[in-house]
Amino acid sequence: MSLRAALIAVLALAPAAPAAAAEVSITVAPAAGVRLGSPTEVSGRVTDAGAPLAGRIVVLEVRRHPFDRAWGREAVTGTDDDGSFEFSPELDRNHRVRARLIGVSAEPDLLSAQRDAFVVPAFTLAFEQRGERQLRLRQTYTVPRDVKLSAPTRFYVGPCRRGTAGECTGTRARLRATAQTRRVRAGRYRAGATVLLPRSFRGRFRYVSCFVYSPGSGMGDPDQRCPRRLARLR
């Protein structure tokens, strides 16, 4: 056998290099979650060896807290020219989400990684000023009727230092009260506290609240924590 024939025989026996596999990326924003009633932005991109795959069908699949049921189909879309896709589901509880690229011809479906999509209670924070120094703070929560909230609500109050344009320039607020979050009726909770403002505030203040995950509620990031002493003001 000639050297050339031997080389051809070896090449024929060698396995063919596998075709580059498609990839499906997925991102959930904002990572900290959205308030109940607001859409969650789920986006991603489908590529093959770095090249975008346009016109492909992508299915958004979700699994609702407590994540013990089968995955369900939430929405369907197609990829754009750059291979990107977007979904904006309005979820009522924490979910796990993933994207399924529907296979064509003999190709199997392809799944993305799973991502957490957090949903926190809808809430309103209000105050009533009683005199120059006394402040009544109240936070009201709206949740699905079967959700139970148990975590306390923390209220932070800081001074309002006026800037050159008259705006408040304070950047931090101190923890002034921790209040029990009480059930008003199914789907509605409330927490309130009365705070005495320091004289140095001169009746001007800024305030913010914080609440963490209630075990078993399926609403919010279980790893979220509230500041122990000082909260940052935006």
Rank of each mutant, 00 (worst) to 15 (best):
T140C: 08
D48R: 09
R145V: 00
A19T: 10
P18R: 00
D92Q: 03
T140R: 08
V208Y: 09
A32I: 01
Y213L: 07
V76R: 13
Q129V: 09
F205C: 03
G218Q: 01
A19I: 07
L196Q: 14
V147W: 12
C210H: 03
T79M: 08
R174A: 02
R136H: 09
Y213F: 04
F85W: 04
Q129E: 05
G44D: 09
A99H: 01
P66I: 12
F201P: 03
E107D: 12
S214I: 02
S88G: 09
I102D: 04
E61P: 04
C160F: 03
A29I: 08
S88K: 14
M219N: 00
G55H: 05
V143P: 03
G166N: 10
V147I: 13
R56W: 10
Y207W: 10
L135C: 00
A106H: 12
P18Q: 01
D92G: 15
P66C: 02
L3W: 13
L233F: 01
E107G: 00
R98Q: 09
A70K: 12
E132P: 06
L101T: 04
P198Y: 00
R234I: 02
R35N: 14
S200G: 11
P15A: 11
T27C: 15
S2H: 14
S43F: 06
A54S: 15
V147A: 08
I8Y: 14
S209M: 06
P89A: 00
L53P: 03
A21L: 15
A12V: 08
D116A: 06
P159F: 00
A14L: 14
P30M: 03
D68V: 07
P159A: 12
F205W: 11
G192K: 13
R63A: 11
A231K: 07
R206L: 08
F201L: 04
T153G: 01
